[in-house]
Amino acid sequence: MTAETIIQSLASGLLMGLLYGLIAVGLALIFGLMDVVNFAHGEFLMIAMYATFFLFAFFALDPLLSAPLVAAALFIFGAVVYLLIVRFAVRAKANTGMVQIFSTFGLAVLMRGVAQYFFTPDYRSIPHSWLGGKTISIAGIYLPQPQLVGALIAIAAFAGLYFFIHRTDFGRALEATREDAGAVALVGIDKNKVFALGWGLGAALVGLAGAVMAIFFYVFPDVGASFATIAYVTVALGGFGSVFGAFAGGIVVGLVEAITTLILPPSLKTVGIYGVYLLVVFIRPRGLFGSI
């Protein structure tokens, strides 16, 4: 193992980590807003990947062009999921925590079933896109272009999100609602509207990630499951609800995955991520950046 291979894999780990952060940030946003974990988050990613795939298959639209469309579609989807399911789940009078977990979990199972029914369990991929399969050499390190552009999109998305939360009225309403939903209602902000927009925004972010992922990853009904576990770990590492914790958590996860792949056989690569999760929460039970 030369220094070059180590730098090489750390660099691709970093890129992948930024993408993991982008996948996870929607989950963190929604949790921070209303203390609900969306257990269908992986399936949101899955339908975003399918949407990207079909836009390519039917309209020959490159994933980079369809990304904004997919994000917009996911925004609507997320808001609808809130209005149809989550809105009622958080109102449950008994077993509230359980109802939240299992209503979104049921949605995940349902979406997977629907995907299998309409799209068959086949693995699909986008055979040729602007970036697919291309690499770029920077100072002797080869970086896959899809991941590189994905990482740049992730950084841009995080910057945009930062601006959005701190500089816009809606962002302030979002922050205020997560601080104290009851008080927000008193000053005339419709809590439901904020929550619906929060879900829309969270889904749009994972939609963006899905469009990028579809460039270099297979699309199939269960694709969300493995990325979802990584997303939960990412969010928990950063500390549930901390949007920028998800960013940092993603980078940690990407680097740990790269290092694990250097040491252990590829089939064990997620063991490193899971192990680091356990290590972190055993030492800091609320994650790296979570408030105690």
């Binding site: 789940a89 449950a92 299992f102 049921g106 995940a108 349902l110 997977r112 299998q116 029914y117």
Partner: peptide, 13 residues
């Protein structure tokens, strides 16, 4: 899966 998922959502809500 569709039956299953629908049932889980319906009953938990």
């Amino acid at each position: 899966l569709i039956v299953y998922g629908g049932l889980i959502i319906a009953i938990s809500l």
